[in-house]
Amino acid sequence: MRKRLCRRLSLALSVAILLSFYKSVQELPQVILPYPLQKRIGVSKTPASVIVLIWWYPFGKKTNIRDCDTLYNIGGCRLTANRQFYPVSQAVIIHDRDLAGNVSQLPAVRRPSFQRWVWMNFESPTHTSGLEKLNGVFNWTMSYKRDSDIFMPYGYLYPKKTEGRRVVLPAKSKLIAWVISNWNEDHARVKYYHQLSQYVHIDVYGKYHQSLQNSSVVLTVSSYKFYLAFENSQHVDYITEKLWRNALMSSTVPIVLGPSRANYEQYIPPGSFIHVNDFSTPKKLAEHLLFLDKNGSRYQKYFDWKRRYSVHLANFWEEPYCKVCQAVKSAKADCKTISNLASWFQ
């Protein structure tokens, strides 16, 4: 009975929105899959206008909201931060960092039965708190976790149209780089850096350290052979721009400290990176890096992936917004809620 009511309400709302906010729409394309597999949200066979309300601009920074059709060929979407559209919005995106566990900041008006509240968070569990208060509040999750309702990784590899014959790398005259702004002596990444730097030189950039060349991470790091893609905390699937932009887009071999090697291999080929856990001690890792520095053919093999794949770096924040619209267009009227948000995310 409840599902039938949801369908009727959703259909009635769609008709009303089409009359009020008519615009040209087209069928959704298949989503691009990151390596080796991204959860498919699905393809809508009957495009309809969808209003997605952004409850807060993330971190309070107002940004331009462009059209999903122009950006990602996802037609029939209207993104807005105007809360007057709340009663007719099929989805409301609520950024956890701005909510900060304060349920009084949630919409005060009763949620329409056709509407889905989307919990959006790209921080790790270490830097997320107060979720116990949000159990039973949200309908969907959107995060970097692969089992989110809307899977939104920081980046992914996608196949090139044609496989390249050889890989040409930028000129590399330096060994190891690291870019870090949040320096904390208690973090595992800082502790490992101190140990590794006893055996090999590492150039450090960021706050309180060297300045980036032309304020560009990619321009700076591309002249190095290796990059410390160390996450600020270690959790399953928490693989950020430190890998995708800082290392891979810079054509530099990433040395990773984060989740397990097996978890990384769900995103990138096993021979494309070095995991700190591959070596019993930081000294052993340093010895391997110095060996690769002198052995060009072995070093070059770390870039075999570049013949077959390109890097997609997530576009925050328009890409998550448009993914929500895509999800709404292909969703069924299940009217579910997330009863265990805290235990799921932690």
Rank of each mutant, 00 (worst) to 15 (best):
L290R: 13
D69R: 11
I176M: 10
P159G: 07
P58G: 10
K161W: 09
I54V: 14
E319I: 05
E265K: 06
S343I: 11
E265N: 12
L292V: 06
R97K: 15
L289R: 03
Q84D: 13
I32F: 05
K225A: 09
Q266A: 03
Q266D: 09
K242V: 02
L169Y: 02
P170H: 09
D186W: 02
H127L: 12
A229R: 03
N184H: 14
P269V: 11
I93D: 02
I51D: 00
K191R: 15
Q90Y: 00
A229S: 15
S250Q: 05
Y199N: 06
Y72I: 01
K284V: 12
A247V: 02
A188I: 08
P47Y: 05
Y193F: 15
N232C: 08
S260D: 12
P112D: 08
G60D: 06
V221W: 03
Q90E: 12
P159V: 07
R261V: 14
L11T: 11
S280T: 13
S129T: 12
V190W: 09
F303M: 01
P125A: 12
L134F: 09
D67S: 12
G75W: 01
V50P: 00
L157D: 04
Q84V: 08
E123T: 13
Q195L: 14
Q26N: 13
S272C: 12
H312W: 10
Q90R: 13
R261F: 07
K191S: 07
P58V: 11
R165H: 15
F21S: 00
L212K: 05
V253W: 01
A314Y: 01
S223A: 14
V88P: 00
H235I: 06
S49D: 00
Y267T: 04
K145A: 03
S113I: 14
H201G: 06
K174Y: 07
V103W: 09
D304W: 06
I150T: 02
W344L: 06
L28S: 12
Q234P: 04
S223N: 14
V31L: 11
H288V: 01
D304T: 13
Q326R: 15
Y35R: 10
F273M: 11
K191D: 03
R166A: 13
F316N: 03
V31H: 10
A16N: 10
P107S: 07
I74H: 03
V25S: 14
G130I: 05
V218A: 08
L99P: 02
K336P: 02
C322L: 01
S297T: 11
L212R: 04
L131D: 11
P107A: 08
R298F: 07
S129L: 07
N82P: 03
L18G: 10
S223E: 14
C77I: 00
F316G: 00
Y267M: 08
V190R: 08
F226M: 08
K207D: 11
L175F: 11
W344K: 04
L33E: 15
W119T: 03
F138I: 11
Y302L: 05
L11W: 13
Y199Q: 06
L5T: 10
F114G: 00
A16G: 12
K306G: 01
Q266R: 05
G76M: 07
W117K: 03
I41W: 02
C335H: 06
D67W: 01
M1S: 14
C68H: 00
D96M: 04
A16W: 04
E123F: 10
P34H: 11
K39H: 09
Q26L: 13
R2A: 13
Y86G: 04
I17H: 00
S211P: 05
F273S: 06
V137T: 15
R261W: 08
N277A: 15
D278F: 10
